[in-house]
Design a protein around this nucleic acid. Structure first.
Lengths: 132, 132, 132, 132
DNA sequence: GTGGTCTAGACCACC
DNA sequence: GTGGTCTAGACCACG
């Protein structure tokens, strides 16, 4: 599990870390129950401060994506969070993303095709995570 | 064209304004060529600082959604920006949004259905904007 | 609104700050809508680091006790949080507190009398906060 | 006497053990004079480190809830600690707990009713502990 | 001037 | 070893 950071992006580093881990879980590169690197380890690997990694982990924990266990460190998987809230967020994100795309010349057909493709790629990853 | 702001949100106000205008254009509430309210007017209506509105307009101009002309004021419609860049951005946004949704218990079918629905709603707006 | 900190306590400073603000709100010393001191101000007054105060404020915000508004700083009052969760937490706290008290020789009558007294004092504060 | 631990809670494990034993004594599941499991036994049962159990026992001994005798092992019942200190602690705990509950929409009546109920449940346990 | 983010250390509690 | 907390600065985004 490599974290590629873009310093200089306007997305805060802790959010980049959080996003990559969410992607990693959804795409099966990180299995449920699998151990995440310790705060220290990841902070050294990524070249950022411990507290930045800590902030990302706390956020992921609060969102229910990971569990922080006193005994064995940090692991993937936790409490599934609020489904309907997630749906609402998703819809708003889609409205904005789609609006931008349409205004930039992306056709409705392209849009839906891309949705399907991204969705399929996600599914494939989930089904064959073992080869990672 | 009403701008509904959520102070206290973690989305900066200038971005909220920008997003609502993008949505307004995509959904046909704002027509190409239509004049946007002046910075002063909008800032008073929305109860925010003029600098904040200015920042939103500058961003929209830079993104090619509006044109700012000293003589005729600010109008909808502009250069139309980089299509392939927009597609790449869209894809990354979808990957993350879909990942979050899937991890929160949204099924693949629900996901694609929602995409279709949001897309359709957008299209309907574009087709019947005249009554605004 | 003075914050009295006990360095050397095993309760983390950020929690002490959080607790005192919760007490302050419940006892009416802090009115809904009233502005809290800025992170910088409070950190200087209390002689602690900004990030410690920040952590307390973030926690209070997450718990729905305060609102952090980009325009006007931090204010008392927010979204009422989960009532039933609060009741469950309360019950567990009471079970433990009462058990300890009983084992230390506090009679059942004393216990309930103390509950009543604390409850009354709280109510009086809420009713006459203006003289503060 | 089963100890139910919640790894992943932010309450340290040794404190969870201590709390459950205090509850056990107050609710009569653990009788005065009764022998507690050895550190080794309990640590194996609960799946935690012996040091963790030891820390809980030392704390309980220091608080006067149990006595540790090299010959006869660990037993319930001890010195009975400072009553007025216990009362003060209790009052502070109640102030904070009540404040949180009131701010989360729990009425004064509900609050006192819950106190009474918790207190009664405690008393019933103490009166009929024999069947354990 | 506000809060948000980040750094490069440090000490401590826990296991 | 782990994560939790804290410090004393700093820079930036926001309004």
């Amino acid at each position: 599990m490599l974290i590629a950071l873009n310093f200089g992006s306007d997305v805060p580093i802790y959010l980049q870390i959080r996003n990559q881990i969410v992607l990693g879980i959804a795409e099966g590169r990180l299995q449920a129950g699998e151990r995440l690197p310790s705060i220290r380890t990841l902070s050294e690997e990524a070249g950022v401060n411990m507290m930045t990694v800590n902030k990302a982990y706390q956020l992921l924990k609060q969102e229910g994506y990971i569990t922080i266990d006193r005994r064995s460190g940090t692991r993937v998987g936790g409490t599934g969070s609020d489904r309907s809230a997630a749906l609402n967020r998703l819809k708003e994100e889609l409205r904005l993303s789609f609006s931008e795309a349409r205004l930039n010349g992306v056709s409705q057909e392209e849009l839906l095709a891309l949705c399907k493709r991204v969705c399929m790629e996600l599914e494939e990853c989930e089904c064959s995570p073992s080869t990672s």
